[in-house]
Amino acid sequence: MTAWPDRRILDLFGIEHPILLAPMAGPGTAELAIAVAEAGGLGALPCATITPEQARSALDAFRAATSRPVNLNFFCHRKPEDDPQREAAWRARLAPYYRELGLDPAMPVAPSNRAPFDDAFCEVVEAYRPEIVSFHFGLPEPRLLDRVKATGAKVIASATTVREARHLEAEGCDAIIAQGFEAGGHRGMFLTADVSSQIGTFALVPQVVDAVGVPVIAAGGIADARGVVAALALGASAVQIGTAFLLSPEAKIPSQHRRALETAEADETAITNIFTGRPARGIINRLMSELGRLAPDAPAFPLAGGALAPLRAETEPVGSRDFMSLWSGQAARLAKPMPAGDFVRTLAAEVLAKVR
């Protein structure tokens, strides 16, 4: 298609529409990625909460269904050091909830399964050669990044500040995702830990566009044609959308999460670290209200989630969302429930009509 005024991302990735599916760990299924890809957008397969073997299975399913490009996404956090004292303090804060549910506050809990990009995942990239590889929380160590680039993959990563964007360009990223404060899920911040200094999408995008020479992808608070047109007008070459896809049938989310997305107002989301130990935006629930949004005593990412697992296991099967991470951006109420492929095609047509 030649109607898009900025073709840099289209030509770089080999896609029809400048619409990228955000790689949402948990909700992001192979079926969702396939639907977006077949509609002309860029499908994404998140690997943050799965094993290399599961990543291979997801890639097998994607490749069997479509020949379109795919984005394979990874977290790049550093494994935290053990801190028994901090963990014990966190367990003590959660102890009243354990007792309320008839659980032993001292019961053993499994560690979080969020794994950073490593040699095993790099071997998956080398074997399957995805067209795009994206990273969150910075970039992997140089030797791993060099191996990824050697496969021919285009490398992209999230920046939440201009300084982070410049850093990513200097490290050789082919495009940069400018993630605004409105975005749902984990902040991609890696050169700062100050959440209060984070920038909104439509202030961040033009500053990143001015600061770097590679194409910029706008993310955060974009769920309809108006948001896409605004992002393009500010210099973005494409948009990355997450929350708006959560209401599609291909997304894998619990029913109570879906109900929360359908009813929550824009001011009912907040940045919190209590579910994983790292700042992320989600719909406010009981745990966020009672523990506080940002808890300084929460264990480092991703350890905070381990002690919450028994509480979630006890309450979620009966429909409670008290202890569930209800990730959502601020534009959830703009989302329309429809199949993911239909959403991409409709959105692209509406944007082009407005651009013309």
Rank of each mutant, 00 (worst) to 15 (best):
P108V: 09
S134G: 11
S158F: 11
P310G: 03
A353M: 07
A233S: 14
L326E: 03
R345N: 00
A159R: 00
D104K: 03
I9E: 03
A223I: 02
N113R: 15
R226I: 01
F135Q: 12
F137D: 13
C173F: 12
K336M: 02
G277T: 09
G28P: 00
S197K: 14
S197E: 14
D224F: 04
E290A: 12
P337F: 07
I271E: 00
P84S: 07
T49P: 08
R312N: 01
Y98C: 06
P84E: 01
K79S: 10
K154V: 04
I284K: 15
L303Q: 14
P27H: 11
V209E: 07
P215G: 11
F202A: 10
L145I: 09
A170R: 15
H167T: 12
I177V: 15
T161G: 00
T276Q: 13
I156E: 08
K252C: 12
A203N: 09
A106H: 13
R68K: 15
A170K: 13
D297Y: 00
P206E: 09
L291G: 05
R312V: 07
F75E: 11
L261W: 04
R129S: 12
Q207G: 04
L12D: 11
V155C: 06
D297Q: 10
L168M: 02
F275T: 05
A88G: 04
G341Y: 02
V318P: 01
F323Q: 01
A304Y: 03
G188N: 11
G188H: 03
I15V: 14
P254Y: 04
S134C: 07
N73E: 05
V229P: 05
G305W: 00
L247M: 02
I253G: 10
